[in-house]
Amino acid sequence: MQIIIGTTNKAKTKAVETICRPYYPDASFVNKEVDSFVSAQPLSNEETRQGAINRAKQLIGQGDTLFGIGLEGGVQEIDGALYMCNWGALVTNSGEVFTAMGAGIPLPDEIAEKLRAGAELGPVMDVYTNRKGIRHAEGAIGVFTDGLITRSMMFEHIMSLLIGQYELSKKLL
């Protein structure tokens, strides 16, 4: 049985495996890079959620797949500030779609200005921190929470919400 993850991002993959392994110990985890069919930098909760759903839907119906997982990071504007927003989707082979959202904190104005001008958060964070691959490690959430919450931890929370919904739906059948 396979759990297919619609990304090759290390932080997202770690989150899926950390949460799913205890529930599905015999599952193999397969990464597949798929398009979100939304902006490279989603600019709303709705667009970010749709990106996660789009990723997950492309993964179903491929062999012995239990479900597909799509995880998407974006930003949304609230009262003039840009907040990080994060969404996940779990899609089953029968077409059921489960979604969940995660943590969000405001971004500093200097980061928000670059995103409003069309930049993507990951590369902006690499410049801001003078490091490469922030999105595969602690992510912006890790930088702006002083490491208390990492990108993987944030997506683990989303994965827990998704798996909880999925497992409950099986009990209700």
Rank of each mutant, 00 (worst) to 15 (best):
Asp64Gly: 09
Asp64Ser: 13
Asp64Arg: 12
Asp64Asn: 15
Thr65Ser: 13
Thr65Trp: 07
Thr65Arg: 08
Leu66Arg: 06
Leu66Val: 15
Leu66Ser: 02
Leu66Tyr: 01
Gly68Trp: 10
Gly68Val: 04
Gly68Met: 12
Ile69Asn: 00
Ile69Lys: 02
Gly70Asp: 09
Leu71Ser: 02
Glu72Arg: 08
Glu72Ile: 10
Glu72Cys: 06
Gly73Glu: 02
Gly73Pro: 03
Gly74Ala: 07
Val75Asn: 11
Val75Ala: 13
Gln76Trp: 08
Gln76Lys: 14
Gln76Thr: 14
Glu77Gly: 05
Glu77Asp: 10
Ile78Gly: 02
Ile78His: 11
Ile78Asp: 04
Asp79Cys: 05
Asp79Ala: 14
Asp79Phe: 10
Gly80Gln: 10
Ala81Arg: 14
Ala81Trp: 07
Leu82Cys: 06
Tyr83Trp: 15
Tyr83Gly: 00
Met84Asn: 10
Met84Trp: 04
Met84Pro: 00
Cys85Gln: 07
Cys85Pro: 04
Cys85Trp: 07
Asn86Lys: 12
Asn86Gly: 04
Gly88Gln: 02
Gly88Asp: 01
Gly88Cys: 02
Gly88Pro: 01
Ala89Tyr: 04
Val91Phe: 01
Val91Leu: 01
Val91Tyr: 00
Thr92Arg: 05
Thr92Leu: 04
Thr92His: 03
Asn93Trp: 01
Asn93His: 01
Asn93Ile: 02
Ser94Thr: 15
Ser94Ile: 09
Gly95Leu: 14
Gly95Glu: 09
Gly95Ser: 08
Gly95Tyr: 14
Glu96Tyr: 12
Glu96Trp: 10
Val97Ser: 05
Val97Leu: 04
Val97Met: 02
Phe98Tyr: 09
Phe98His: 00
Phe98Ile: 00
Thr99Ala: 01
Met101Leu: 04
Met101Thr: 11
Met101Asn: 14
Gly102Tyr: 02
Ala103Trp: 12
Ala103Val: 06
Gly104Lys: 08
Gly104Ala: 12
Pro106His: 13
Pro106Ser: 10
Leu107Phe: 07
Leu107Ser: 02
Pro108Met: 11
Pro108Val: 06
Pro108Gln: 12
Glu110Arg: 08
Glu110Ile: 15
Ile111Gln: 05
Ile111Arg: 07
Ala112Pro: 03
Glu113Asp: 14
Glu113Trp: 03
Glu113Arg: 12
Glu113Phe: 05
Lys114Asp: 03
Lys114Tyr: 05
Lys114Trp: 09
Lys114Gly: 01
Leu115Thr: 03
Leu115Tyr: 13
Leu115Pro: 06
Arg116His: 09
Ala117His: 06
Ala117Ser: 13
Ala117Gly: 06
Gly118Met: 13
Gly118Ala: 08
Ala119Tyr: 06
Glu120Leu: 07
Glu120Thr: 06
Leu121Ile: 14
Leu121Met: 13
Gly122Leu: 07
Gly122His: 07
Gly122Ala: 15
Pro123Tyr: 14
Pro123Asp: 10
Val124Cys: 10
Val124His: 13
Val124Trp: 15
Val124Ser: 09
Met125Ile: 05
Asp126Lys: 08
Val127Lys: 14
Val127His: 08
Val127Asp: 13
Val127Phe: 05
Tyr128His: 15
Tyr128Val: 05
Thr129Pro: 01
Thr129Asn: 06
Thr129Asp: 03
Thr129Ala: 11
Arg131Asn: 11
Arg131Ile: 00
Arg131Gln: 15
Arg131Gly: 00
Lys132Met: 10
Lys132Phe: 07
Lys132Ala: 12
Gly133Tyr: 12
Gly133Thr: 11
